[in-house]
């Protein structure tokens, strides 16, 4: 397989690229992780998505903004194949999933981790069994399951909750367990469906930090659906690095750098009304976008 150079993750505002580059032998890297081509969907007379086009590159976080009922969560359900589009094509890892039946989608879903709005933990299972669910289904050896569950709970900083039931957890803890469950099996794509809705700001910040770690340290491609502007601020202005002691640090991109692995699309009534960087979003002269950003 041919070697290929990965684009650097950071560029200066003047367009000059930062010097570090990486090599990979994965020729598939040039394929987008997710691609929507002219995707349309309507429920009865109501148009939910109207010829939507966008791509999520490898290692990129695509933030999907929009008001309630704008079609944000529908995009995630389409990627998972939980609903089918009326027209257009959806690609996951370069594979056209539009016509896939349920057994074929089950295989595609193994590559995808999904974080639901309220966590969607299985009430009858403990935190351990929730996180281990996918591995138990695959019949993985119990020692290996336990190691993986502890690793994932360590990632979301919830090792102490391993034996608790979902009913004993706070809203933020449920979301974090949901993230740990989604990450089991090391999916290359993670979908976040309003994971910070209804959470206090520090907990919402923690969830965003997990998404940043996934993007910058695990090379995960993701769609992050939200309507909260502070989520956008965190995800598009900070990046994660690991210091010499192995500690994860979050640093601001500052004035001289611009994260190129995070983009925003904004939906309105089933149409994409904006696509680009967060700085471009704030500079757009559109009354709807202005009102959305400022909340007035």
């Amino acid at each position: 397989m041919d070697l290929e150079t990965i684009n650097s993750e950071l560029v200066y505002d003047n367009g000059e690229e930062v010097s570090f580059t990486a090599k990979t032998d994965d020729a598939n890297r040039i394929l987008p992780a997710i691609e929507f081509r002219d995707v349309s969907l309507a429920f009865d007379d109501q148009i939910v998505l109207d010829s939507i086009n966008f791509r999520v590159r490898r290692g990129e976080t695509k933030i999907v903004l929009g008001g309630s009922g704008s079609g944000k969560s529908t995009i995630i359900n389409l990627v998972l194949g939980l609903i089918k589009p009326d027209s257009g094509q959806i690609f996951v890892d370069g594979e056209d999933i539009t016509g896939h039946d349920e057994p074929e989608m089950m295989l595609v879903r193994k590559k995808i981790g999904m974080v639901f709005q309220e966590g969607a933990l299985f009430d009858s299972l403990s935190v351990y069994d929730n996180v281990a669910y996918r591995l138990h289904e695959e019949g993985v050896d119990e020692d290996e399951v336990e190691h993986e569950v502890r690793r994932m709970l360590h990632f979301v900083n919830l090792e102490d909750a391993i034996d608790k039931m979902p009913a004993e957890l706070s809203g933020g803890m449920r979301r974090r367990v949901g993230i740990a469950r989604a990450l089991v099996g090391n999916p290359s794509i993670v979908l976040f469906d309003e994971p910070t809705a209804g959470l206090d700001p520090p907990t919402a910040r923690t969830i965003c930090e997990l998404a940043i770690k996934l993007r910058d340290l695990e090379d995960v491609s993701s769609i992050f659906v939200t309507h909260e502007m502070n989520n956008l601020d965190y995800l598009s202005s900070e990046y994660a690095i690991v210091d010499e002691n192995g500690q994860v640090l979050f640093e601001l991109e500052g004035e001289r750098l611009c994260l190129i692995n995070t983009e925003v699309i904004m939906l309105r009534e089933g149409n994409i009304v904006f696509s680009g960087k967060d700085e471009q979003l704030r500079a757009v002269d559109d009354p709807y976008i202005h009102r959305f950003i400022r909340g007035t």
Partner: peptide
Amino acid sequence: GSMVVSQQIDAMRSLGTS
């Protein structure tokens, strides 16, 4: 029904289980 409205069924499908 409770599993449907709390998205547990969707979660199950997203985890590759029918």
